[in-house]
Amino acid sequence: MTGESKSETEAWIEDKGAEYAYTYAANMDGFMRAIDAGGYPSSALIDASGMVVWSGHPSSLTNQLIEEHLVGALRKPLFEWPKSAAKIAKSVRSGDLGGAIREAKAYAEKGGELGAELLADLQASLTSRLEFLNQRFEAGDFFTVLERGESLLPTLEEGEPRARLQKHLEHIATDTAAQNCLEGQRAWRKLVGKGPLRKVKDCDKRIEDLKKLSEKYTGTFAAEEIERQIGLARATKTKLLER
């Protein structure tokens, strides 16, 4: 979806000598919302587990940020994998990392092309995801632990990492403080999910509503997130006023 035609885009690419991959978004608003884009150019990093981990102006993207999130990412994209590894790739596409590891083990044992490398990458990816969830849990980000942990848990084999994640999820399900924080995290997401801010008065309303949430969930991780949302709404208001 673009204001430019495909032919104009292709001509522009050729003219600039751009070599990066590009594509066209069918749902512009949805895409802009998904990457937190408030203008042009905007960029975002999506980590190996499919989470938006950063967004902002391309010039503010740092080497350190990239390095941090490269941990656990596959070294080779699926479209460069040998066809014989198709079953593993299918599991990766569906988000079944545990299944992919099981497939990769069998594949490596049979001497499949790049088997050892694929297996090592997948195991590293799983380890980093678990470490990430442990860190989020310690930080009080129960929404992320729940969101990502619930889908990861069934893919894990019995063992300490699985038991630890299960313990986290049980804590979130039963602890009153965790439930309160989770409620706040869901509340602000529901609020900002209502759609983009197109008018100054919408920004004022959003800021007001967020402030109420921040007070309600004060002292929790949710309140920290809400404060950031207030900052973003204020920045949007400033941009709208400048137009």
Partner: peptide
Amino acid sequence: VAWLVISAPSPAQVG
């Protein structure tokens, strides 16, 4: 790279 036309700012989805 997604080529998109100018749009109004939208809420953050980081995380």
